[in-house]
Amino acid sequence: MSGPTFDAAKAQITLADSRLVFHCHHYNVSLQRTLQDALGERAVAIQREAACETARVMLTRLYAEEALTDFSARVARASQIFSDAGFGRADVSAFTPLGATLTLTTSHYAIGWIAKFGPSSEPVDHFAAGYFRGALIAAAGLNPERVSLEVVQDAGAGEGMLTVVRYEVR
């Protein structure tokens, strides 16, 4: 399996031709709050959609590069990339091509948000919710319009230790 590669001449890190950049929880959650302060609820949809498209495009290329064809192997690879990148630990055992439930046992965004701002009144891990929607779409080869998500529980919103997101395939 391929990992991120660093090109010192360009000062660029890539994984499956997608650029990766190091950032910390202070920036990640501050930028998120900035976006939401500016556009309110619309910013939530923008962030989830951005995460979904980013994951879908990168994973589609990665699955081709690594000749990964099995649905479960594809989802497991997406989960491994998520954890390796520092976003938390995801249980993807309830993913099927017809629908899925994501459970995060740790969430970078939830931990970062609570550390910086305290518990939120709303869900905060829009990145994870969108990323795994993109992973489901890429792993099953679905039309993005068929997949919707619902955040059932979010650790950043003081709703317990877990973040749970349900994906419906229409």
């Binding site: 991120p4 890190i13 997608s18 650029r19 990766l20 950049v21 190091f22 950032h23 910390c24 929880h25 202070h26 990640n28 930028l31 900035t34 976006l35 500016a38 556009l39 910013a43 923008i46 962030q47 959609e49 951005a50 995460a51 498209e53 980013t54 994951a55 495009v57 990168m58 998520f82 954890s83 390796d84 990148a85 520092g86 976003f87 938390g88 630990r89 995801a90 046992t105 740790t106 970078h108 931990i111 970062g112 990145f127």
Partner: peptide, 29 residues
């Protein structure tokens, strides 16, 4: 990421994030 999928370093939690995510979110706003 460690066993919790987190990268504690420099007294922070780091991520190897996706430039496309930042750009699409920031530029949309």
């Amino acid at each position: 990421g460690n066993e919790e999928g987190l990268i504690p370093a420099f007294g922070l939690h780091l991520t190897t994030h996706f430039a496309d995510y930042y750009n699409r979110s920031s530029f949309a706003v």
